[in-house]
Amino acid sequence: MNMTDTIKHHLTPEILMAYSAGTLPEAFSLIVATHVSMCDVCRAELDSYDAVGGVVMEDAVTADVSSDALSSTMKLIAASDTAPKAPRRSTGTLPSPLQDYVGGDLSAIKWKPLGMGVKQVILSTSKAATARLLYIPAGAAVPDHGHQGTEMTLVLQGAFVDEEDRFARGDVEVANEDMEHTPIADMGEDCICLAVTDAPLKFNALIPRIAQRFLRI
C-alpha cells in the first residue's frame, strides 16, 4: 500500500507528534494510521517522533518493579502464543487500519444515502471526534457539514479539486473552521474519502452549498 511517490499533501507535524504521544482522539488516530500506511514520508517523521518518546521514557524518573516482576513476566510469556504473525498488509483499496473499522474492503462498506448520489457511513470510534467515509459521485460537490475546529480529509479513491489544489488518493487536506472552500469530485471517477472532525457531526440533510451560504446555516 505504498503510495509515497504520488502523495503531495501530508499530515501536519503536530498531528504526527500527538499520534506518537498517544493523545489524539481515536478518529484522528485512524486517519493518521491510514495515511501513514500509504506514505513513507510521514512514516519516517512519525518514527522520529517515536524516537523523541523513547528519549523521554529513557530519561524519565524510574519506578521500582516488584521483586517477582521478572518471573511473573516469564510466566506471561510462557502462557502466550509467541509464533510470529504474518505482517498485516492490505492488497485492496482500503489500507488495513481502515479495513479493521469497516470490516473489509470497499464492498463491505454499508453506505447510507444522503441525496444527490452522495453517501456516507459513520465509523464507530470514541466520541471525542467523528470519522466517516464519504462517497461523492464524479463531478459532484462535496457536501458541507458545518464543522467546528479541525477537519481532516484523506482521499482513498478518485480525487477532488478545490480553489487551491487537487487532492488524489493518499492526499490529506487539513482544514480549520474559517476555511472557505468548495471541493468538487474529479470527473473521471467517483470519489471516496475518509473525513474526520473534532466536533460532533452536524449535517443530516444535504443542502446545496449556495443555499447554505445564502442562508448562513
Binding site: 498517544g22 481515536e26 488516530s29 494510521a33 491510514t34 505482517p87 492490505s90 487500519p97 473499522y101
Partner: peptide, 12 residues
C-alpha cells in the same frame, strides 16, 4: 484511555 489504537500497516 480505554480506546482502540489504530496502527499503520506493518512493513515487510
Amino acid at each position: 484511555r480505554k480506546q482502540r489504537r489504530p496502527e499503520p500497516e506493518d512493513l515487510p
